[in-house]
Design a protein around this nucleic acid. Structure first.
Length: 807
RNA sequence: GCCGAUGUGGCGAAAUUGGUAUACGCACAGCACUCAAAAUGCUGCGGGAAACCAUGUGGGUUCGAGUCCCACCAUCGGCACCA
């Protein structure tokens, strides 16, 4: 009988999904395990082969955990708001709701065809009003706590999508989604105060089990730096110019100042500035530059001296010029710097170009100050202050501390920590997103709509085009906008912007715990029981977006007493990308896209699952190979045919017994360590052994099928049934091994002479050195090499190696 | 420039964490089955006649290094005028 995967896979999927075999249990007395994968955006292209890599991995772990007796929650849902559906609507006049529903249905079918053990009874969809009701509710809570605020500020504006973007969504000065240039635009936007959580987002990483590279990337993005804010007097006034520096020990070397083009000092001293036209001209040019042009590397520094005003260096009391240049950013620190060309690379470059004085105030510990610097000396670990008054002679670290103390004592400024992280631009001028549940009243300002009016449903419209000035399509709905102020009852206007993609995904994992609750996000009991998520796997591309945002929301919900843990995810891992067979990223234009449906059709879901786990280390990128997938298909065929070799008459075999115990140990630990590729190779080796020996016992087959089940659930369940087992595998208990039976009685010890392999000897596992020594001398090659030489030393590492050193 | 990875056969990759380098799979070759092919099964498969030589390069530590240390080179990912 040959293996008909189509029939078998269909059969088991139907059983699982109609019976709800893998649904989480309501029994809160059981030990729990909550595994999470990033819920997909249901795009029109359908599932990508990248999705099953992550989903299969956690499916394997989830299935193992169930067999180990855990109450497992392995949920699925859809992150369905977003631009593609809206752009499609603009083009084809189909409501995004319709496209989304169609895509979700397609995705659901595809996911089911792969046999994942998801709990489909808890499926969530971010576009469902019963879901986004709570997204809006969280927003209102953020507003009430002062963490959502509306402000006019220069934002990143995508010229293609006609929409404001968060910093995180701008990549190399272009839009992360569409690749159009991003420009700075003044716009009134809703902002979320994520910067208030910056320190906690760093500190709490210590308590959770994230891959180091994920922690590093998040810390990098938050970008904490320590230093001081210092006031520089403006000559002839009582006013000061506030700067931020991480190197207060270099103030003696500050020979000029630089302010960002947007800095207020220019308006303030317009009447004093002698070259106002020139300065304004520079300002104008800087504002026209796109984010990309401004951040372009290696470009020449530019700037203009602001003539007519000067600053006083607070430590040298020298009057120093003030320049305007776009290498100083208004969005970081105070928008103004003291320039220390001798000890800052950028200042050095600028000073060289404009012939400004370069004054050395630090020399290397083990060297002397140079006659003329060729580049800035910036090494904080290896510097000593010179020409710096009370700092002279101190190493840089000590000098920094002393300088800050001096600054604080003399009221020149204060110690200050800065972050690169910016507050989160939360408004989108788009239709297909959660409406922001806010109302503006002339007399009462912004207020949220009453909670009993949630959800604020997205109104039906026909015209999805954004408005002229990049207004939201909702801005055209005058009837919908008109409402009453929740505070004073007078006429007021609704907010027409919607929330970004990232809103719905910032808390979805909480909804899975209690998805049909219409009173709260989820019940206290459910939150207490299921929190935190035990294991979350997803892509590295979400490290500074989704992962940071959702940690922020979770901390906020913790602060207001909704969730029981500070962090949502106890453990975070990530999978490597699957590339096309040419080693490039899969894309339609390159024609290297593999559709999982085709693989399932030709080889079956089990083959796809096994292949994706076997193709390489889970956390590394791997190119697709059509040839290799056939190998996995062949392997499963061989597993199927093992039933013909079943034979209990040989009975007990020590060799097979050892092999089984070793395999249970290896596969169990490989799964926990996500070393799926070596687990699969263990299965292959076992299969080869059974074929070589031409038999296996039913017990061995049963254990083998149990171990393989998480990887290839359909074929293994079918075989388990065929050999007459009354239970299904998912009802059985994960096999256990006996450590003593994983150790061989006889071991082969390699014998080396001067570290070079000369042969091996077989000895009992606990043979002592003398016994091994005797055998070693009998090895022919060893005899030959050591003959006539003096033995200097003999080393025996028990069970590992025997090495003879000769001269 | 900064942060993080990676580098082993023709290819995807293993290596118990310092102890027989190349497990497992693909590709390839030979044999069996077949009229034939496919499928399947078995065998072989780093280089070299051998001594030996091979884990990106060059040094080092060690009885012993793919694994540890130092200095490079290359590729990939993230950040980037962040003061």
């Amino acid at each position: 009988m040959s293996y008909n995967f189509k029939e078998v896979e269909k059969k088991w999927q139907t059983k699982w999904y109609t019976e709800g075999t893998f649904n989480a249990k309501e029994d809160y007395s059981m030990k729990k395990w909550y595994g999470l994968i990033e819920f997909p955006y249901p795009s029109g292209q359908g599932l990508h082969v990248g999705h099953p890599r992550s989903y299969t991995a956690l499916d394997i772990i989830a299935r193992k955990k169930r067999m180990e007796g855990y109450n497992v929650l392995y949920p699925i849902g859809f992150d369905a708001f977003g631009l593609p559906a809206e752009n499609y609507a603009i083009k084809n006049h189909v409501h995004p709701k319709i496209t989304t529903e169609k895509n979700v249905n397609h995705f659901r079918d595809q996911l089911k065809s792969l046999g994942f053990s998801f709990d489909w009874s808890r499926e969530v969809n971010t576009t469902d009003p019963n879901y986004y009701k709570w997204t809006q509710w969280i927003f209102i809570k953020l507003f009430e706590k002062g963490l959502a605020y509306k402000t006019t500020m220069p934002i990143n504006f995508c010229t293609g999508c006609k929409v404001g973007l968060a910093n995180e969504e701008v990549v190399n000065g272009v839009c992360e989604r569409c690749g159009s240039p991003v420009v700075q635009k003044e716009k009134s936007q809703w902002m979320l105060g994520i910067t208030k959580y910056a320190q906690r987002l760093i500190d709490d990483l210590d308590d959770i089990d994230f891959l180091d590279k994920i922690k590093a990337q998040q810390k990098n993005w938050i970008g904490r730096s320590e230093g001081a804010e210092v006031n520089f007097k403006i000559e002839g006034t009582d006013d000061t110019l506030l700067i931020y520096t991480t190197r207060p020990d270099t103030i003696f070397g500050a020979t000029y100042m630089v302010v960002a083009p947007e800095h207020g000092i220019i308006e303030k001293y317009a009447d004093k500035i002698k070259n106002l036209d020139e300065v304004n001209d520079y300002k104008q040019k800087a504002s026209l530059k796109s984010a990309f042009e401004r951040s372009e590397l290696n470009k020449e520094k530019s700037g203009v001296e602001i003539k007519g005003i000067k600053a006083i260096n607070p430590l040298t009391n020298e009057a120093i010029p003030i320049w305007i240049s776009d290498y100083v950013l208004m969005t970081y620190g105070t928008g103004a710097i003291m320039a220390v060309p001798a000890h800052d690379t950028r200042d050095f470059e600028f000073a060289t170009k404009f012939n400004l004085p370069i004054k050395q105030v630090i020399k290397p510990k083990d060297g002397e100050a140079k006659e003329k610097l060729e580049e800035a000396f910036t090494d904080v670990y290896n510097g000593v202050s010179i020409n710096s008054g009370f700092l002279t002679g101190l190493d840089s670290k000590t000098a920094i501390e002393k300088a800050i103390n001096y600054i604080e004592e003399n009221k020149l400024g204060k110690r200050k920590v800065n972050y690169k992280l910016r507050d989160w631009v939360f408004s989108r001028q788009r239709y297909w997103g959660e409406p922001i549940p806010m109302v503006y009243c002339e007399c009462c300002g912004w207020n949220p709509i009453p909670e009993d009016q949630l959800p604020l449903k997205l109104p039906e419209i026909d015209d999805y085009e954004p408005g002229e000035n990049g207004e939201s399509p909702l801005a055209k709905l005058t009837d919908w906008i008109k409402t009453t102020c929740p505070k004073c009852g007078k006429e007021a206007k609704r907010e027409t912007d919607t929330m970004p993609q990232w809103a719905g995904s910032s808390w979805y994992f909480l909804r899975y715990m209690d998805p049909h609750n219409d009173k709260e996000i989820a019940s206290k009991e459910a939150l207490e029981y299921w929190s935190p998520i035990d294991w979350y796997n997803g892509g590295m591309e979400h490290t500074t977006l989704h992962l940071l945002y959702s940690r922020f929301w979770h901390k906020f919900l913790y602060d207001i007493g909704i969730v029981p843990t500070k962090e949502p995810y106890q453990k975070r891992t990530s999978h490597g990308m699957i590339l096309g067979s040419n080693g490039e990223k899969m894309s339609k234009s390159k024609g290297n896209v593999v559709n999982p449906d085709d693989i399932v059709e030709e080889f079956g879901a089990d083959t796809l699952r096994v292949y994706e786990m076997f193709m390489g280390p889970f956390d590394q990128t791997a190119p697709w190979s059509m040839e290799s997938i056939r190998g996995c298909n062949k392997f499963l065929d061989r597993v199927w045919k093992l039933q013909d070799l079943l034979n209990d008459e040989n009975g007990y075999s020590e060799k097979h017994e050892k092999m089984m115990h070793k395999a249970i140990k290896k596969v169990s630990s490989d799964i926990e360590e996500m070393k799926f590729n070596t687990a699969v190779s263990t299965f292959m080796t076992m299969t080869n052994e059974f074929y070589k020996d031409k038999y296996l016992t039913k017990d061995e087959y049963k254990t083998f099928l149990q171990l393989l089940n998480p990887f290839a659930p359909h074929i293994t369940e079918e075989l388990y049934e065929i050999i007459g087992e009354p239970k299904t595998i998912n009802e059985t208990t994960w096999p256990k091994y006996d450590e003593a039976k994983t150790i061989d009685d006889e071991i082969e010890v390699p014998v080396q002479v001067n570290g070079k392999l000369k042969g091996t000897v077989v000895v009992p596992k606990d043979a002592d050195e003398e016994a091994v020594k005797e055998k070693v001398k009998e090895v022919e090659n060893v005899q030959k090499v050591i003959d006539g030489k003096t033995i200097v030393k003999e080393i025996y590492v028990k069970g590992k190696i025997y090495n003879i050193v000769v001269k």
